Amino acid sequence: MFPFELVRLTDFENEVRITVRSSMDSAFWEAEIAVTSLFVKGSTLLVLSRSKLEAWVQALATLSLGQDVTWMQTDRGPTVSIQLEGERDCPEVVVEDESISMVTVRIPIALEEGWITDHQERIRHFIDQL
């Protein structure tokens, strides 16, 4: 089951990926957020919980209604925001790691049609494997 690519937002020049690396126990998983563009490349580790997975399901439902989302907004760990209409006429993904590195990265990504459905299938598949 591991590694499992939970999030893959890419247009082949810019990408944000969240890959679940391993299970810490039955309720927590170690994962990595990786951001790659022609300008910047970086990653950070995070811990996913059942509540964060459920919040991702809700975030995808909100995105499917045409609304922007912020996922994992807490005082500890990275936050991922998806703005469907960014400044460059395409979606933008913002990854903020205020609690550890104090770095924020904003990446425009021209996402393909059907990306929300793809991610709903990814999270459903991951949860079904638990």
Rank of each mutant, 00 (worst) to 15 (best):
D68M: 00
L111G: 14
H125V: 00
D25G: 05
G66V: 03
E85H: 08
L60D: 04
Q58F: 05
F4M: 06
I33V: 13
E85S: 13
S51W: 10
I116L: 09
T10E: 15
D25T: 03
T117D: 08
T19I: 15
I33R: 12
R50I: 06
L84H: 12
V94N: 12
L53E: 02
R124W: 01
E15A: 10
V93S: 09
K52G: 01
I18K: 07
L9M: 07
Q67M: 12
E30F: 08
L130D: 02
I82L: 09
R76I: 00
E32G: 11
W115K: 00
F4C: 00
C90Q: 15
A27C: 09
M72R: 11
F126P: 00
T70H: 03
F39W: 10
L9D: 15
R76K: 08
W29H: 04
E30H: 05
E96V: 02
I18T: 11
F4Q: 04
G66H: 07
T79Q: 11
M72S: 08
F12S: 15
E92K: 09
L45C: 09
H125D: 00
R124C: 07
E92W: 05
Q83F: 04
T19G: 14
A110C: 12
V40S: 13
D128F: 01
W115Y: 06
S99I: 14
V103A: 11
L84N: 06
L46K: 07
M72D: 07
A31K: 01
L45W: 11
I82V: 15
S43G: 09
G77R: 03
W71Q: 08
S64I: 04
F12P: 05
G86A: 07
E13C: 12
Q83K: 13
D11R: 12
V105K: 01
N14G: 06
L6T: 14
W29E: 10
L38A: 15
S22T: 13
H125L: 06
C90K: 15
L46Y: 03
R8L: 14
E121D: 09
G42P: 05
T70P: 07
R8D: 15
F28V: 12
P108E: 10
K52F: 01
T10I: 08
I123W: 05
I18F: 05
K52T: 10
I18M: 15
T62Y: 00
F12H: 07
E92Q: 09
Q73K: 06
L111Y: 05
S43M: 10
G77H: 02
F2M: 11
H125R: 00
G66F: 00
W56Q: 01
H125C: 02
